[in-house]
């Protein structure tokens, strides 16, 4: 299989993953019923029980998508998690700083356009983030990190490296995997502010993650980048009440 048909397989597989996760539980009444049913059997609060169920479902479907794509691309597991060199740590630290600063730059642009927009509030209202915040506090870091792990293995592993393994160029592979990742995030939100913030952060994360993966020859640094990014910003959105419009005074002249 060459790169373009494999890219089509990626779209179909990831589309199936997100559809199976999202569509059956799009109806709030059904979500409530499932939550009550799960709460009866687990002793958890209905919202926490449903959040846990949704997370497990998302991860399981992601693992199935990953296995399918790796089979199609003929990618061995070692190719995904090859050990990077010690220099990769410097590149990872730079990527962490760069991803954060670019992400904040995108949010700053939004505040410039509309200073009254409530970004932390909007982000905590994203369905999957509010689900995570319904879980016990110690899981607020764990769940985004585990979700990031699966997403990174799929998008930077199976999709990016898979396109490379099927003969695709880096520019095509990086652009395709990044856009697919961003679209996958945007379809899970419900307002334009959420779509802008999550879409832009996905584009930034996808770009730096792709470059980091190609530079180090392993998905592991990009995986650490994504896990820390997702955990940090999920929690920051929840705890932050300060507005990003609190710009420091001019320093650099």
């Amino acid at each position: 299989m060459n790169a373009v048909p494999y890219a089509c397989v990626c779209v179909a597989t990831i589309g199936g993953w997100l559809a199976l996760y999202r569509l059956p539980f799009g109806d709030p009444a059904r979500r409530r019923r499932v939550g009550l049913w799960l709460a009866d059997r687990t002793g958890l609060r209905p919202d926490a029980a449903f959040a846990l169920f949704g997370t497990v479902l998302y991860l399981l479907l992601g693992v199935v998508a990953l296995a399918l794509l790796m089979t199609f691309a003929g990618l061995p597991v070692q190719r995904l998690v090859g050990r990077p060199s010690a220099d990769a740590l410097l590149a990872l630290l730079l990527a962490v700083c760069g991803t954060s600063s670019l992400n904040i730059l995108c949010v700053s642009l939004l505040y410039r356009a509309n200073p009254r927009v409530d970004v932390p509030g909007e982000i905590t209202r994203v369905q999957w983030i509010s689900s995570i915040l319904a879980l016990p506090r110690h899981l607020h870091w764990v769940v985004p990190a585990v979700a990031a792990l699966v997403e990174e293995l799929v998008f930077r592993g199976a999709v990016l490296l898979g396109i490379g393994a099927t003969g695709g160029g880096f520019l095509f592979a990086a652009t395709f995997s990044t856009v697919l990742f961003a679209v996958g995030q945007v379809v899970l939100v419900s307002t334009w502010v959420q779509a802008y913030v999550l879409g832009m952060s996905s584009l930034v994360l996808g770009t730096t993650g792709s470059l980091l993966t190609a530079a180090t020859g392993s998905v592991l640094p990009a995986l650490v980048l994504h896990m820390s990014f997702a955990g940090f910003y999920t929690n920051l959105s929840a705890t932050s009440r300060a507005r990003a419009s609190s710009a420091p005074r001019r320093l650099s002249l």
């Binding site: 730079l94 760069g98 600063s101 670019l102 020859g217 920051l236 300060a242």
Partner: peptide, 28 residues
């Protein structure tokens, strides 16, 4: 498969566009 050097160069340029924005994290 791809040139690690080119990717590293791209990463350096992309990651250094707006370092000053990092101060907003502490403000948050």
């Amino acid at each position: 498969m791809w040139s690690p050097t080119r990717s590293l160069e791209g990463l350096v340029l992309v990651a250094t566009v707006a370092p000053a924005e990092l101060v907003r994290i502490t403000g948050s």
